[in-house]
């Protein structure tokens, strides 16, 4: 099973490179305040998870065996997809939250504009 072993090695190497890239990018983004720490944390978790799985080959094999997948890289991809789902879920929640905040702000702004307008009219009447 030399071919399969080498393919596992390769995918593990890709996993390591990929996760280090993720961790580094996220680190730089959070540092530059492009990304909030809150979201950075989720990414760090996922990046770290991939890194550990890629470094510890046995862990990967055990995990694959646990979920009944014979071909370990498939289990790895399945996990990646699961992580992506989690992230998307996280994003949907954040977007919903932002949307309701945005709505409240827009309403408040509209109402405040009306108040300013009315106050301006009253002031100009008083000045006349």
């Amino acid at each position: 099973m030399i071919a399969s072993a080498s393919s596992i090695d390769r995918i593990h190497l890709i996993g390591v490179v990929f996760s280090v890239l993720i961790l580094l990018t996220v680190f730089l983004m959070v540092r530059a305040r492009v990304m909030k720490e809150k979201y950075g944390l989720v990414w760090f978790f996922i990046g770290g998870f991939i890194l550990v799985m890629s470094l510890e080959r046995e862990l990967m094999d055990t995990f694959a065996g646990l979920i009944g997948v014979e071909y370990a890289p498939s289990a790895f991809f399945a996990m990646l997809i699961a992580c992506a789902y989690l992230l998307l879920l996280n994003m949907s929640v954040s977007i919903s939250h932002l949307k309701s905040q945005n709505k409240a702000l827009a309403q408040e702004l509209g109402l405040t504009r009306l108040r300013v307008e009315e106050l301006e009219q009253r002031i100009s009447r008083l000045e006349r």
């Binding site: 709505k103 109402l111 009315e118």
Partner: peptide, 20 residues
């Protein structure tokens, strides 16, 4: 009185402005 909303909120958001 006219409230000009800064972005389109849809009927729900608009009517809620009235409630507020």
């Amino acid at each position: 009185r006219v409230v000009d909303l800064p972005c389109n909120l849809g009927i729900g958001g608009a009517v809620q402005t009235g409630f507020k």
